[in-house]
Computed example of a mutant assay.
Amino acid sequence: MVGAAELSLLGPDNPHLAELEVAVAPAHQRAGVGRSLWRAAREAAVADGRDTVVGEVYASPDSGGAALAFATAMGAVSVHQEEHLALELDRAATPPDPDAARDGYTVVAWGGRCPDEHLAAYARLRTRMEHDVPQGELDRRPIEVTEERVRAREGRLSPSYDSLVAAARHVVSGELVGYTQLLVPHGETEVVQDDTLVEPEHRGHGLGARLKRVNLARLRVEHPGATAVHTWTAPDNAPMLRTNLALGFVVVERMHEVQARLGEPPRR
């Protein structure tokens, strides 16, 4: 096997959309393998009634590179960009955050399955994340995250990842008002920093940074073999970018979300 294409047909919230990943072994690139895989994936998407394909392309921060050139040749355009940042854990200073109430907020943490008592609030926060996350001109519609969808996602993740969630609880109201999540792949040392959200009316208290510090401290204790954490932040998301840089993350490359309309095949 010298290459592969993986086509994901999105659910009823985005019936027009498919996600595509194309990978070709370096020794077999520039021989038409990627183009053949793209054509096969395009045919499958069109046959299923999809009119748009999206995917991720990685490049150096200051140049496009071969992957972006390939996507462009296939008719895709870059519609959103994010910085890919990495944190080397042996160089990071992330002392644990005190659990006592501070500035009117406490931290609630769990691993894997969300406790039933927090499920409704967690689903609400994940729905807010769907609507708030920057995505440029990407033609993806936000979904309403129900309690059932939270449980379904946990079921999909658990065979491959350990999940660490830290959430901020507003002391006066008792409501959860923010969360962050780390995904630790089984048998791997590279960790993914997933969503981080604080509701707008509770921003300005350093909650995003606090939640991330708590989770990084938990990561060191519960997964001592972890070596690095990766995250993605839109360049115009200045508050989160500042938070990540202050924690010791550094920009390593640029991620382009590319999008192709399937009305016409790519030029030959």
Rank of each mutant, 00 (worst) to 15 (best):
Arg141Pro: 03
Ala73Arg: 15
Gly248Ile: 03
Arg261Gly: 11
Ser8Phe: 11
Val57Arg: 08
Asn14Trp: 00
His28Trp: 09
Gln193Cys: 02
Thr127Ser: 07
Ala86Gln: 13
Ala209Pro: 04
Ala4Glu: 10
Arg268Gly: 04
Glu88Val: 14
Ala31Pro: 02
Gly178Phe: 02
Pro98Thr: 05
Glu19Val: 11
His16Gly: 06
Leu207Trp: 10
Asn215Glu: 14
Pro235His: 05
Val229Lys: 03
Arg50Tyr: 12
Arg242Cys: 02
Gly3Ser: 09
Leu20Met: 07
Tyr122Arg: 12
Val108Met: 10
Arg50Val: 05
His80Ser: 08
Pro185Lys: 09
Ala66Phe: 14
Gln259Ile: 12
Arg267Asn: 05
Glu148Ile: 04
Val145Gln: 03
Pro26His: 07
Gln135Asn: 10
Arg203Glu: 14
Val252Glu: 15
Arg242Lys: 05
Val2Arg: 02
Leu182Cys: 07
Val165Trp: 08
Asn237Glu: 10
Thr231Gly: 03
Arg218Leu: 11
Val54Ser: 06
Gly208Ile: 05
Arg50Ile: 09
Lys212Asn: 03
Ala228Met: 13
Glu175Cys: 08
Asp132Phe: 05
Val46Met: 07
Glu175Ile: 11
Glu6Met: 10
Arg151Glu: 11
Ala67Phe: 09
Val191Met: 04
Leu207His: 04
Val177Tyr: 05
Arg35Ile: 00
Arg126Asp: 14
Leu119Asp: 04
Val192Asp: 13
Leu87Ile: 07
Glu148Phe: 06
Ala217Gln: 03
Ala123Gln: 06
Asp13Asn: 12
Thr227Asn: 04
Tyr161His: 15
Val24Phe: 00
Tyr179Cys: 12
Pro235Val: 14
Ala167Pro: 11
Arg113Ser: 13
Cys114Asn: 10
Val252Phe: 13
Gly136His: 01
Gln181Trp: 10
Leu9Lys: 03
Arg126Ile: 00
Val24Met: 00
Ser173Ala: 05
Ser163Ala: 14
Ala228Glu: 11
Leu17Asn: 03
